[in-house]
Design a protein around this nucleic acid. Structure first.
Lengths: 341, 341
DNA sequence: GCTGATTATGGTAGCGCTAGCATCTGTTTG
DNA sequence: CAAACAGATGCTAGCGCTACCATAATCAGC
């Protein structure tokens, strides 16, 4: 009678079948009691709840995913978690997707194309319900796998030129342009550009920087410095030292993010270079500390959290209705003019 | 003959069966070619490889997990990703577990006990092969589920008093004590303590601080300030202002992390308070920017990356051999005495 | 009291993959 | 030359869950 079938392959863990037996119902009723409690009568629901608690039952997600063909997960690929920018984006995503019951598969370490491909393939094995990516996929294989998978996808941070994909972000070149214009308007003429890793977005900001200089007739003056290293305050110090040694005449530096800018600021403090009088410093992203540094940092405020929120929302819409047209959502940016420039 | 059975529940995605048919072999051979290539002859291996490429086959991880009872994933729960400390820990974990083929399920937002429980339960549904946790689980239900799951677990950051669990980290109270001793030895007497959220680890550092003051006979003098808000440079500015307003006589402040310390530094710069002459400032963690700030930040260097690495290694050992005894691994810390104190 | 709709529960058959064994071929050994 | 063995491949039966359909029980309406 008590057909406690335990095959050789059984894992020994409590299954839905065990709970069903304990509660004197069928497995499918337990399944329903857990997923759609309203479809099960109250007495059964309670009995099942007790059985679950007594046995310490934890549903097996792999089995659920396999049977239902829905993973209830969304994969998010960001370049790096040491960059606060992406942590803020993630927070926005989590705040939208968490309450909707989605689990996030967070992948990082994407400044390397091979690693990016590896990660994307790995996450596709989970058959996520949706995909949130940062920037275009670099490797053709990754792009093919992406297209072939049919998983709804939203790209974040940048606005895609390709209007067949959905993207949420702001115009990187426009932001670079705006900051450079600001520096020009404040009377600076020898404006340097500083970056860490030259990813897509950084390159676009640089395009904006160059365009602004060109238009102002200073296109011939061009002091650009970058490093393959990851961005950090320390790197900002180093690059500033190097920049000033090579181009002593510069009167402003547009740093591609706030970490570098803070490093530039520290370097100037250490050397007694007055900011912004002798050297104006501009950052990018408005990471929070810029508002309290001395002098306070002029920077570009980017809608990171909001990008995460809107990207998640657009993705949800596309999961519910895969036929939706692609969309490009520009969330803009805002110049924060403070003391350093 | 071509029994292309496509039941009503089929997802339409390419399965291992499709690949097998295309390559003219059985499904199990494809499975082997993908997992243990050496066990399949070269010609077949190549034919299968081509079929995989042609069809764009992506294995279904849920099915694999279900059939093999191994998820090849490790769940990592950290309090927050906006705290660089945990990002460094994650990097160490990834560097060990990634090459070994494990996927990481990263959970954050754990400063809330209810959320922590929710996340832990959600990750247990994945039946991870191992679990890396930060701090003790607060809720009894979470602890029960953890114990019942039988999943190998390593706790990170702090050293557990409970020697039945494996933990990797350093002594938080000892670190708090050491820094306070340093400040005392430099002649400071009115030493304040500043923290953001009072999590377990922060409280233990404070214990060390109090003990050092007590021993030095300054136990009666106690200026402590904290805030329920998340730690940030801005919060450091605020708390410093508040602290100085309430306790104008303090001559040193021990900040529970470097963000707060930088905020304190900025506040002093803004108000023209000489550091360290009028107010010495000490941080915690040695996040990188402390080495270049002006003045450079005295702080406690914590082996974050290394904690991640060793925790992952201990976990691997326990996954391979669940019978291993619990272990407590103290990785120590190092006082970084620089200019600010 | 009968019909048709509605609600609550259960049985069956997979989802896509792999463990465990069986089978088949070719090679080695006494 | 038979027996023993190793290596390569295949068959079958699940892993634990849920979609789909069937059935039983209840109820409104005529």
């Amino acid at each position: 009678m008590n057909k406690r079938r335990t095959g050789s392959r059984s894992t020994g863990r409590t299954t839905i079948e065990d709970v069903a037996r304990h509660a004197g119902v069928s497995a499918i009723t337990v399944s329903r009691a857990l997923r759609t409690p309203d479809s099960v009568s109250k007495p059964l629901r309670e009995r099942i709840g007790q059985a679950v608690a007594t046995l310490g039952y934890v549903p097996n997600r792999a089995a659920r995913t396999l049977a239902s063909a829905r993973s209830n997960s969304v994969a998010v690929l960001v370049p790096s978690l040491s960059n606060q920018v992406f942590v803020d984006v993630l927070a926005g995503i989590r705040d939208v997707l968490g309450p909707r019951g989605y689990q996030l598969l967070i992948g990082n370490n994407l400044y390397d194309a091979a690693e990016e491909e590896r990660l994307l393939m790995a996450y596709l094995e989970h058959h996520p319900d949706g995909l949130l990516l940062t920037g275009l996929q670099q490797s053709p294989r990754a792009r093919a796998a992406l297209a072939g998978s049919g998983v709804p996808t939203v790209h974040m941070m940048d606005l895609m030129a390709d209007h067949s994909v959905t993207s949420v972000g702001f115009s990187q070149p426009a932001a670079g342009y705006a900051m450079t214009r600001h520096l020009l308007e404040r009377g600076h003429r020898r404006i340097a550009f500083m970056a860490a890793q030259l990813d897509e977005r950084t390159l676009k900001r640089r395009d904006g920087y160059r365009q602004a200089l060109d238009e102002a007739g200073h296109g011939d003056y061009c002091a650009e410095i970058s490093s393959p290293a990851a961005s950090s305050v320390g790197l900002g110090v180093e690059l500033t030292a190097q920049l000033l040694a090579e181009h002593p005449a510069i009167d402003a530096v547009f740093c591609c993010n706030d970490d570098l800018a803070l490093g530039a600021l520290f370097h100037c403090q250490r050397r007694g270079i007055p900011v912004p009088q002798h050297l104006a410093i501009a950052g990018f992203n408005d990471l929070g500390f810029g508002a309290c540094s001395v002098p306070a940092l002029t920077t570009v405020a980017t809608p990171r959290y909001h990008i995460g929120v809107r990207a998640a929302e657009l993705l949800l819409a596309r999961i519910d209705n895969p036929a939706l047209d692609a969309e490009t959502l520009d969330l803009g940016f805002e110049l924060q003019t403070r003391e350093s420039a």
